[in-house]
Amino acid sequence: MPVALASRVLPLLPLQLLLGICLREIRSRHPRIFDRLGSHTGKRYGLDPTDLPLAFVLEPRRMNPRVTVVRTLPPGVDARIAGPLSALIGMTDGSYDGDALFFSRDIQIDGDMEAVVALRNAIDDSRVDFLAESVAWLGPLATPIERLLRGLVAPPSFRQEMGVGGGG
């Protein structure tokens, strides 16, 4: 996977800056996420794409949300959600159902389940599209780059294998 290869050799700082911009955009455009998270805004979520040599620690604090890019998840996160990058992204944009991904064992979850359920529901309701949000600041280049990224992280065959997705 080209994304995996690139993330193995590239420094993490540019990605962290990009995700920081993305998170600020999400905070201003989707404030309802934080309402739905309720007391779980104070939790630390470990997001672990199993096909990438890096992971993310998400702290969805209402006033100052933060995401940290790490090579491996540190101990002490409240909850961990692990799975292929395309599955994790597909859950956020409504392409995949989180419960179905759990039943099929494509994702693994552990830790504080209330926090996981709250995050899943908050994001599902928000219709946040992480790929679109992360390139929105690129202006006229946003659309072609978004298309390129979608091709890299969510090959169509994955959706068919899952037996889930937006079709039907």
Partner: peptide, 13 residues
């Protein structure tokens, strides 16, 4: 309690 992907697919089906 299920996500939008479930709702859309099951309802359409």
């Amino acid at each position: 309690q299920r996500g939008r992907a479930y709702i859309e697919r099951v309802v359409k089906t």
